[in-house]
Design a protein around this nucleic acid. Sequence first.
DNA 1: AACCTAGTCAACCGCTTCATT
DNA 2: TAATGAAGCGGTTGACTAGGT
Length: 314
Amino acid sequence: MGRSPCCEKTSVKKGPWTPEEDILLVSYIQKHGPGNWRSIPASTGLLRCSKSCRLRWANYLRPGIKRGSFTQDEENIIIHLQELLGNRWAAIASYLPQRTDNDIKNYWNTHLKKKLRRLQFGPGMEFDRSEDLRTTPRPQSMSNSKGQWERKLQTDIHKAKQDLYEALSLDKSNPLFTQRISKLKAPAVASDPSSNSTCSDPSSGMETGGGYQPSSSTYASSIHNIEKLLQGWTKTPYSSSSSSNTVSSQKDLTETQHEFQDKRKPNMQEMMIHPSQEIGGPLSFLEKWLLDDNYGLAQGSDDYDLVSTIYDSR
DNA sequence: AACCTAGTCAACCGCTTCATT
DNA sequence: TAATGAAGCGGTTGACTAGGT
């Protein structure tokens, strides 16, 4: 299994992305859709490696990303999922579609770890909880019989489930939750994009996030630049002509920018309302888990399937 | 005003997993 | 089945900023 020669080490640009680079990347993805990262540098003329392009898209340019401080509900979800799943940030992020795994990881490392440490050991006590989690309960349980591990996990899951359900249902403004609740009840009814919105800025449709203070000097932190770039992004089917995937000419670029500003703007909000390009998609595993068994909390329902799923996925 | 320190977060690195041949 | 390449993931780094001295 050879290492992937991700990119030529020479002539690959590193460091913060420029607006021009973002435009090239967004233009390409707007035409061809995300994926096929390998071909992007060659097709767009970007002097970035494929990994860098994918990361830039996934962590920053992708529509529907919510920036800014995390809510209490989000915190609770992250804490419980981290307990259940460990540092599997991508898995955790899949339950918070508006947040990227990188964001969650950063937030965990910079805020939550310390917060939990303080709560658990009191101020002044320094203890690396993540280290503890890595070396104690779960691995210990794993070393025991599967049955023991499952019972322990079931207890955790019941608690997590209860808290997660409370967290989600308390947040009436959570569009993902309400939308999916209604979808569950009436799957045939198309959702009304104008009925709910997380967008704090209706003119742009961009979730600016509470309290987020973009850096004034660095491009990478300027939400407004990204906002402009993505203005008009839609889920319009991508061009199937992936053979001519070159956005090298200025003409193409200009046209694309105009497309963003003109034709596509009306659908921007839709994308923001339905993050993660999962509009109308199937309920996530966790959502099904929460919703399909009538919450199964007081009934003491058997979470064996869930436990098995989690267990087997390890 | 200058320096220091801690916090934040975008981006990179290297490993693993997945898909294809 | 094995080999290969691409994509995905988590850990880490380093640039930048804010606040304190």
